[in-house]
Structure formats: structure tokens, C-alpha cells
Amino acid sequence: MDKEYKMVRKTTEGPIRNKEKTRLKLLNAVGEIIRTEGYKGLGVNNIATKAKADKKLIYLYFESVDKLVEAYVRQKDYWETFSEGIQILIEEHKGNFGKDLASKILVDQFNFFLQAEEMQKVILWEISEKNELMREIADARETLGNELFKLTDPQFENTNVDIRAIQALLIGGIYYLVLHAKSNGSTFCGIDINEQTGQQRIINSLKQVVEWTYNEAKNQKKDL
């Protein structure tokens, strides 16, 4: 009985392991191409060659090249990391209307994007051409952002502090500062974020802007 069980187990688990191994190879190939060649290198033949896999497996496991790329981007995208635990985060930070969470998200995003070479290329792709896949991913980020704003918006009601506009400027600033520094290595406003001291200045300022924003809203509500 034990021998029969072991034989069945081997034959059923083997294909599953092979499938996951091949899926991972294809996903890793997408990342390597984005990092070294940019999004224009994401053709079916190039991906299959990098993965050392039959290109038919792309369609078998992901249905299309676009869905393979989407799977890769979603597993690497910073904002996707919040998708599963978003309601828990909201509950945990209700006490101060997401003030601490807002700082943490911005600082973590800055640190993540600074190191994530593939995602730097993905953001460049998003802003350089009209693309349905990139639009879907951007829209998914917006949906997640709206969930987080449900936590922060009440703090800013009946004030002239526009938390959404401020967050847009901060997040956009993070993207631009990192892309600028990584593209040509130059400073911005005399700050070099390729150096630890420059990175810390940005982190401190992100926290400071969030602090000012919440304090201003709080003070305005006191005067009502």
C-alpha cells in the first residue's frame, strides 16, 4: 500500500512542480528583459529564449504575453502588497486617521522604488506610451488608493487641506526623483539620493510634510 501511494504521489506532484518551475522561469525572464532591455524587448520569442522554455508554455500557463507581463508587474508592484491586508491596515490606523500609515507608505515606497530597477522601467513604460495593460495596472493602484483615502478623508473634511493633491505630489515626486537619479546620476535641488545622506533627507521631509498636513487640518477644525 505504501509503495503504491508513493508512486501515485510522484506521478501527480511531478507535473505540478514542473509547471510552477516553468511559470517562475517565465516570470523571471520578464523581469530580466525589463531590467536589461526595457519593455520593448517583451516579445514572445525573446521571453521564451531567456526562460529556456517553449513559447507555447506562455500561452498554456498565462494565456498571452500581456497576461504574463501583468502577472509579473502585479507581483512586483509596491501597491499590490497592500491589496490583501488593506482592511486590516485601515482598522489598525483608524485612531489617527491614517497619519502614521501615510508616512510609512510614503517612506516604504521611496525605499522600495529606489531599489526596484524593474519597477523603475515599468513606471517609465506607463508614462511614455498609451498602453492598455499599463492603464489597467494604474487603475488597480487607484482603486487601492481610494480604499486608503476612506481612512484619511474624514480628517480633512471642512478644511482647505487637500490630502489627495498633497499625496499625488509626494508620490509623483518620489517617482521623478528616483528616475532622475537613476537615469543620469545627477543631483536634484542639490540633493543626491544615490547617497545615504540624500535619501535620509527625502525620508525626513516626507514625514515632515505628512505631519504638517495633519496638524494644519487639526488646527483648522479647532477654529470652526
Rank of each mutant, 00 (worst) to 15 (best):
E63R: 10
I191K: 06
K40P: 00
F156D: 03
I58Q: 11
K19S: 00
N45M: 08
K6R: 11
F156K: 02
V65S: 06
L42T: 06
L177A: 14
T143M: 10
N215Y: 10
A53Y: 04
N160D: 15
N194V: 14
S103A: 07
L124S: 01
T152I: 10
K207Q: 05
E118K: 02
I105Q: 09
G85S: 06
N184T: 11
N146P: 01
Q155H: 14
L57Q: 14
L224W: 08
N111M: 11
K19W: 05
H180D: 13
I191F: 09
D100E: 15
G31H: 07
K21R: 12
I171E: 10
K21T: 06
R135Q: 12
I47P: 02
E211Y: 10
N215T: 14
Y59R: 11
I58E: 09
V69S: 04
M1C: 02
W79T: 02
F149K: 06
S103R: 15
D223S: 10
R141E: 10
R23N: 07
K3G: 00
K104C: 03
Q120A: 01
K221F: 00
N96T: 04
D66N: 09
E126I: 14
Y176D: 14
N204C: 09
Q115A: 14
E91F: 02
I47E: 08
R201I: 13
R23C: 04
C189L: 14
E80S: 09
W125L: 03
E136S: 12
G185D: 11
T159A: 03
W125A: 02
L26D: 04
S64I: 06
E195P: 00
A181R: 11
E4H: 05
S205R: 10
G185E: 08
D100I: 03
K218C: 05
Y214E: 02
D66W: 05
F82I: 00
K56A: 15
T143H: 07
T143N: 13
N194E: 08
T49E: 15
T11S: 11
L26R: 01
I203P: 09
L206C: 08
Q120I: 15
K67D: 15
V30K: 07
N146C: 04
E80H: 04
E84W: 02
K50N: 11
V122K: 02
V107R: 09
K67A: 03
I163S: 07
E92T: 05
D162M: 07
E63A: 04
T143W: 01
I90G: 00
G95A: 11
V44C: 05
R35L: 12
Q220F: 05
S128K: 10
E80D: 05
